[in-house]
Amino acid sequence: MTRNRFVDQGDMTADQLESCSYDLLAILHLVKAVTDGADGGALDADSTASIGRLMALAVEMHVPLHDALERHEGAAPPES
């Protein structure tokens, strides 16, 4: 069973899947805006570290979302 600090993917409701998807999209939009705003210039160390943490969070959020969608679509075997 996949476990993390979020809702277990097997227990995610459609509303939780949608919410997770929107939260993930917001993170990705923010990272894009910050990097686009740098306009090819170097970001300061705090911004660089924050982007790294945001991207790690995005990956962590994507895993249960992806697993739940696979399960919903029958692509993943049921958990035992």
Rank of each mutant, 00 (worst) to 15 (best):
M1D: 06
T2K: 15
R3N: 13
R3K: 09
R3F: 09
R3W: 07
N4W: 04
N4F: 08
N4V: 00
R5K: 06
R5P: 00
V7N: 06
V7K: 15
D8W: 03
D8A: 13
Q9V: 01
G10E: 10
D11Y: 06
T13V: 03
A14T: 05
D15S: 02
D15P: 03
L17Q: 14
L17G: 02
E18G: 01
E18W: 01
E18I: 06
S19W: 07
S19C: 02
C20W: 06
C20Q: 09
Y22I: 09
D23F: 00
D23Y: 02
L24T: 11
L24E: 02
L24P: 04
A26P: 04
A26D: 12
A26Y: 01
H29K: 13
L30T: 09
V31T: 11
V31L: 02
A33G: 03
V34H: 02
V34I: 15
T35F: 04
T35K: 15
T35E: 15
T35Q: 15
D36I: 02
D36E: 14
G37A: 14
G37P: 03
A38S: 12
D39W: 07
D39Q: 15
G40S: 06
G41F: 10
A42F: 11
A45Q: 08
D46T: 11
D46G: 04
D46Y: 06
S47D: 13
T48W: 05
T48H: 10
A49T: 13
I51C: 06
I51E: 08
I51K: 04
I51T: 03
I51W: 02
G52Q: 11
R53P: 00
R53C: 00
L54I: 03
L54C: 03
A56R: 15
A58L: 05
V59Y: 09
V59I: 14
E60S: 13
E60P: 02
M61F: 13
M61E: 11
V63F: 05
V63R: 15
P64I: 08
L65S: 11
H66A: 03
H66E: 02
D67G: 04
D67I: 11
A68Q: 07
A68M: 12
A68K: 04
L69D: 10
L69A: 09
L69H: 10
E70H: 12
H72L: 13
G74E: 04
A75S: 07
A75P: 00
A75I: 02
A76D: 08
P78G: 00
P78K: 05
P78Y: 00
E79S: 10
E79K: 01
S80K: 05
S80A: 13
